[in-house]
């Protein structure tokens, strides 16, 4: 099953809407609540990153019996140094975004801690693509 959501740049009043919708679907699919938490934390952080940093983007969530595969694709500006972006506490967020309590440089770490797999591809001037995989079966 595939679910798609559009993410608007800079619109914090809608940040979390995709995660919230997808959470409801996962509940209906009877996914284990602890696994739902991990999926939702990962998706929310990715979603907020698009709102805060990108010029807009979309989220594509594919669910099968074994895993949830999420692609977060934005249309730029891209991340010049992914290793740096992955460092806890590193953030390029604006003062306004920080005042709201975002931009503490914890987002990507939260995704890494909750996902079974995280792949980041980025090209400056083109965009960033996050692939986040969470397995549905506890090992």
């Amino acid at each position: 099953m595939r679910f798609e959501y559009t993410i608007e740049a800079g619109n914090f009043t809608k940040a979390g809407d995709a995660s919230s919708s997808f959470k409801k679907i996962l509940k209906q699919l009877n996914v284990d609540p602890q696994i739902i938490k991990r999926i939702v934390v990962s998706l929310y952080e990715g979603e907020v990153n698009i709102v805060a940093h990108a010029n807009g983007g979309k989220v594509i969530c594919d669910v099968d019996t074994s895993r949830v595969h999420m692609q977060l694709i934005d249309i730029g500006p891209g991340i010049p140094d992914i290793a740096k972006a992955m460092q806890a506490g590193y953030s390029t967020a604006s003062a306004k975004v920080r005042e709201m309590g975002f931009g503490a440089g914890m987002g990507l770490q939260n995704i890494k801690n909750n996902a079974d797999e995280l792949i980041i591809k980025s090209e400056v001037g083109v965009g960033t693509q996050l692939t986040i995989i969470v397995n549905l079966n506890k090992e």
């Binding site: 914090f12 940040a15 979390g16 809407d17 995660s19 919230s20 929310y44 907020v48 709201m100 309590g101």
Partner: peptide, 16 residues
Amino acid sequence: ITLQTHKNVIAIASLK
């Protein structure tokens, strides 16, 4: 417990 008063607080509270 927080001093943040915007809508995203509820998004997080609900998701968690």
